[in-house]
């Protein structure tokens, strides 16, 4: 009993020390606005509930994520809202021995929205633009990219686990220019969280969003429709692709598209393999 009390006292003391640091503003925030302390003590614990208990996430081959230095983690994107990006961050942080932070690249829509923009910056995300990626990679950070963008998250449920176009594959040019390895990554589970069955285009236009989702629960159940379905998640990191042999060809579209296709096929293949491991999306 005393042990338990001691443990609680220690917890309260740490909690109060954290609270004090936060209240008097004595903490570090990097140039991008990343607040590591807040991420670790507030954002991660909340996401971890979803990650562990709701989605029962399993992670494979974290050995392919480098222990230090820059790398681009390139993954498929799905699930109507970008929950997969957040779960990927947690997977890298919690399952990798070096507990690294994944710095996400986000669309400018994210930075247009109040609150969302604030949380995005504090959790380490920044705008998907060349100067920011170059700076992050130059600092030796792990950067997370979703080349499908809105085409991936906003696709119909029937298209699930079919990789969409990679656009102009800017991530390949970035990797070549910075001589950064690319780690192809497959995420299974996000597609079933909010199965997108329809898109109310006039509403999307009104709100200035890329789409207005209709799922089995949203908007029919109101706020309750925002609760994701408890699908089973699996994340696999693929073998890193060394980009140094082509590092001086970052502006050659042929090389860039070629490499982008290679990454795309690798991720697609990994998705198929993971889906075989998980025949039932809602299995235990």
């Amino acid at each position: 009993m005393d042990d338990l009390l001691d443990e609680w006292d220690a917890k309260v003391a740490t909690g109060l020390a954290f609270l004090r640091r936060r209240l008097i503003g004595q903490y570090e925030v990097d140039d991008f606005g990343f607040d590591a302390e807040l991420t670790e003590h507030v954002f991660h614990p909340v996401l971890r509930q979803l990650y562990k208990h709701w989605f029962r996430t399993e992670v494979f081959d974290t050995k392919h994520v480098p222990d230090e230095g820059a790398a681009l983690i390139v993954a498929n994107h799905s699930g109507t809202i970008a929950l997969d990006a957040l779960m990927l961050c947690l997977a890298v942080h919690d399952e990798h021995p070096a507990h690294r932070y994944l710095r996400l690249l986000a669309a400018d829509l994210v930075f247009r929205l109040p609150l969302v923009s604030e949380v995005a910056r504090k959790s380490g995300a920044t705008l998907a633009c060349n100067p920011d990626v170059d700076r992050l990679l130059h600092e030796g950070q792990l950067v997370g990219v979703f080349p499908e963008g809105f085409k991936g998250v906003g696709k119909h449920y029937s298209e699930r686990y079919k990789l969409q176009r990679f656009g102009r594959a800017g991530f390949v040019s970035v990797a070549l220019r910075n001589r950064t390895p690319i780690v192809p990554t497959a995420i299974v589970g996000a597609e079933e969280t909010y199965p997108l069955l329809g898109n109310i285009k006039p509403l999307a236009r009104l709100l200035g969003t890329p789409y207005f989702p209709v799922t089995p629960t949203f908007p029919w159940l109101g706020p309750a429709g925002l609760v994701p379905l408890p699908s089973k998640w699996m994340i696999r990191f693929g073998e890193p692709i060394d980009t140094t042999p082509w590092s001086d060809q970052a502006d050659d579209p042929a090389v860039v598209f070629n490499l982008a296709d290679q990454v795309r096929e690798t991720i697609q293949g990994m998705l198929h393999d993971l889906l075989k491991l998980r025949p039932d999306p809602f299995q235990e």
Binding site: D31, F32, G33, D108, F111, L127, P131, D132, R135
Partner: peptide, 11 residues
């Protein structure tokens, strides 16, 4: 909203 996080002199 489309600005990079850090401005260099040539931005």
């Amino acid at each position: 909203f489309r600005d990079p996080a850090v401005f260099t002199e040539d931005t």
